[in-house]
């Protein structure tokens, strides 16, 4: 089975990792925003879980980006991860 041509998988990958990290997995939402050269994956979690996906000194977010980077190399496409925080989430839903 090849995964080279399935960018949806990246959205699913981030969703699954984020769900494992948080206390409210049902609140995890990942949107894919296509840019010219890359795809931005925008991760939203419950406000109380934001710290869990970012981590102390951003280390959990950095680790997720490292994983995403390795996997996207195999997909031959660039993906970046944005974590939307509470105030940003409020603004985005207006």
């Amino acid at each position: 089975m090849t995964h080279e041509e399935r960018p949806d998988d990246m959205q699913e990958l981030v969703t699954e990792i984020a769900r494992a990290l948080v206390d409210e997995p049902e609140a995890v939402i990942v949107e894919a925003v296509e840019r010219e050269e890359s795809t931005v994956l925008r991760l939203r979690v419950a406000p109380s879980d934001v710290g869990k996906v970012i981590g102390k000194q951003g280390r959990t977010a950095r680790s997720m980006r490292t994983i995403l980077g390795a996997v996207s190399m195999k997909h031959h496409h660039r993906y970046t991860l944005d974590i939307l925080e509470e105030d940003k989430q409020a603004a985005a839903s207006e």
């Binding site: 090849t2 995964h3 080279e4 998988d9 699913e12 990958l13 699954e16 990792i17 494992a20 994983i67 390795a70 996997v71 195999k74 997909h75």
Partner: peptide, 13 residues
């Protein structure tokens, strides 16, 4: 194991 499985299936590693 579930985390690693995500990487090998969904992630294709």
């Amino acid at each position: 194991a579930a985390l690693l499985k995500t990487l090998t299936t969904t992630g294709g590693l």
